[in-house]
Design a protein around this nucleic acid. Structure first.
Lengths: 147, 147
DNA sequence: CCCCAGTCTGTATATTTATTCCTTTTATTG
DNA sequence: CAATAAAAGGAATAAATATACAGACTGGGG
């Protein structure tokens, strides 16, 4: 019996690698990896993982987070942050598609005095650094948090 | 006969307002707005609009442009860009209403190293210029691309 | 005007996904 | 170690969604 956690991890791995258009297809992928389950189980896993299905197949869709401890923030950044840049008094954070809003909220809630504010699009967060701080330092602080 | 464009606009409006969990539900909403179509048509509209379905119901998902060669970018800019401004380390691009998101994605995908990131609203794109470049130069580069 | 190709949509149906109802497995507690 | 509760997952099936097909309508050529 393959543990559920492992199976769900594998599901994420599979859908990140390439388009999966239905559960039957996913089932075959998993079978190749030695994981044997029924479509019903996949349906439940997909719901638990919060995956989303569109024309391109299944994808992850940013979670809804309502409180952000430094700990939550760390998790979110680890999970969704793909790049950071400092420029002028701004720090630009790139996230997975659709996740920017969530991560930005977490940043806001974290209440760092170094941040004057954040502005999030679909996959980009613009972080405005407060007077008296340097964007490079904030960028580093974020990277240290992840690392 | 209600025009397709209008119907699809209404669909977006409905799903933005509140959770819609299936096409039958959507169909009822539209009917209340005086738009009468079958489930089959909604299925096709949803695909065209690039909507995505998850546990929370239907949502919009990211861009409709999947790769942007310099050529695609040029087309989009020619078509939709109405004004450019440089300010500090930012370049502000004005587009036709509703087009900013699409153009911004194309810019992102173009992968210019001069751009740290973009953030798009409805008709405005905020482009953050990377450290070591001048926003005036980027503005000119964009204008040359069009001209 | 007629024909053609293209677009749009409804009907009927095939495909895909979610759920109900069980059985099995895995803790938990006295 | 029972006894019992909770979690997990399969089989069957209900529900939801996509599609094949055909008819209606539209805008050019000829």
């Amino acid at each position: 019996m393959v543990p559920k956690k492992l199976r769900q991890g594998k599901i994420l791995e599979v859908i990140r690698k390439g388009a999966v258009h239905n559960q039957q297809e996913l089932l075959v992928h998993l079978r190749r990896a030695g994981i044997h389950v029924t479509q019903a189980t996949l349906s439940r896993d997909i719901k638990e993982l919060g995956l989303v299905k569109g024309a391109e197949g299944y994808r992850e869709f940013g979670p809804r987070v309502y409180f952000a401890s430094e700990e939550t923030l760390r998790h979110l950044l680890r999970e969704f942050l793909s790049d950071t840049k400092a420029s002028g008094n701004l720090v630009i954070l790139k996230t997975n598609p659709g996740c920017a809003q969530t991560v930005a909220v977490a940043l806001d809630r974290a209440g760092w005095p170094e941040l004057a504010g954040t502005l999030a699009g679909d996959d980009t967060i613009l972080t405005v650094v407060a007077e008296g701080y340097r964007s490079q330092d904030i960028q580093q602080k974020i990277q240290r948090l992840i690392g």
